[in-house]
């Protein structure tokens, strides 16, 4: 029983390692997909009209 528990713990540890290794590229693929779904735009700031020059000054 005690050996079974140890074996189970080792198997779980290996499974966790494989999961971590497999999930890493999945995460970067998701990041790329997210970047592909983004369409960032920068809007030009409108220039305010110039005030007429006051000749009196």
């Amino acid at each position: 029983m005690r050996h079974k528990k140890g074996l189970l713990a080792i198997v779980m540890l290996l499974a966790a390692l494989l999961m971590a290794v497999w999930l890493l590229p999945q995460m970067t693929n998701l990041l790329i997909e997210r970047q592909m779904s983004l369409h960032p735009q920068v809007t030009a700031t409108p220039v305010p009209p110039e005030e007429p020059w006051d000749e009196g000054l």
């Binding site: 790329i32 970047q35 592909m36 983004l38 369409h39 960032p40 735009q41 920068v42 809007t43 030009a44 409108p46």
Partner: peptide, 15 residues
């Protein structure tokens, strides 16, 4: 990447 009026820059990634 159709650019509407008043948009200065835009970008898009695609495969």
């Amino acid at each position: 990447l159709p650019v509407p009026d008043k948009v200065l820059t835009a970008s898009r990634m695609l495969r």
